[in-house]
Simulated scan of single mutants.
Amino acid sequence: MVEEDEMAGFTIGKVAKASGVGVETIRFYQRSGLIDEPTPIKTSFREYPDATVDRIRFIKRAQNLGFTLAEVQELLGLSEQPGASRREVKAMAEAKLGLIQQKIADLKQMEATLSQLVHDCSGRGRVPGCPIIEAIVGETNTCNHNGT
């Protein structure tokens, strides 16, 4: 958490530095409704409240866990809703976990297939007959031209 005295007069550049993101990221978050755009106080500079840095850090951590910005918006909404249930947050996390586990399974299958193809290719000679190319051509030929 950022100390209040450190936040006094925090401009967009200082918020960016404190939260570890770029100024354009902050502007994007503002346009997306993830963070509020402060109104100018006394000068033309906009001063951000200390909660802005914490909110940006939350957004980045959630993104690092695989949540989309729309999902982050929903998580933020739940975290700010006094009557919200942990069940809703858990359901979102479980759904994200399922997607990540499926991606991992898909990547493992891709790894196994590509590993076998690399093993089958001697790396010598001309490209025609290369098992890697043949496997890729075979993959594209298994689909008909109707997109199915």
Rank of each mutant, 00 (worst) to 15 (best):
S85G: 08
V53Q: 05
F28S: 07
T25F: 03
V21M: 02
A93G: 03
P40I: 06
F10S: 15
S122R: 10
M1R: 11
V89D: 04
R124C: 11
I100F: 04
I136Q: 02
V53W: 06
I59K: 01
A84P: 07
Q102Y: 10
M110I: 08
F28N: 09
E88K: 14
Q109W: 00
A18L: 13
D36W: 02
R46G: 12
E47T: 09
V118S: 04
N64Q: 13
P49G: 00
C130Y: 00
A8S: 11
R55S: 01
C143K: 11
R27L: 02
D54I: 10
D106S: 08
K14D: 06
Q101I: 02
G22S: 14
T113C: 11
Q63M: 11
E80K: 07
A91W: 07
I41Q: 12
L107I: 09
R86P: 06
E80W: 05
A93M: 08
V2N: 02
L78E: 12
A84D: 08
T142G: 10
A112Q: 12
K103W: 05
S115L: 14
E4A: 15
R86A: 12
I56E: 00
L97H: 08
I56G: 02
P38G: 10
F10Q: 10
G83K: 10
T113I: 09
R86Y: 13
R55N: 04
F58P: 02
E134H: 00
G22I: 09
V72M: 09
F58D: 03
I100N: 07
E24P: 02
E71P: 08
K17M: 13
R124T: 14
I136C: 03
T25M: 05
V127F: 05
T43Q: 12
E94L: 12
M7V: 06
P82V: 00
G129Y: 04
I35Q: 01
E134L: 01
T52P: 15
Q116F: 02
G77V: 12
E6K: 07
P40S: 13
E6G: 08
E24I: 03
E71Y: 03
A84C: 07
P49T: 05
M7H: 06
S32F: 08
G66V: 04
R57E: 03
G83D: 14
L99R: 13
D5H: 11
Q63R: 14
G125D: 02
Q101K: 13
L99W: 09
I100C: 04
L69Y: 06
K90L: 12
P38D: 01
V72E: 13
D54N: 15
V137W: 00
G66Y: 06
S32E: 15
L97Q: 05
E88N: 13
R46I: 04
A91D: 14
K17R: 15
I59M: 04
G20A: 01
T39G: 14
T113Y: 06
S115W: 05
I35F: 11
P40H: 09
P49E: 06
R61E: 09
E37C: 09
G83A: 00
G123D: 09
L114T: 06
N141K: 14
L76G: 03
A93E: 01
S115K: 14
V23K: 13
T148L: 12
P49D: 05
A95N: 10
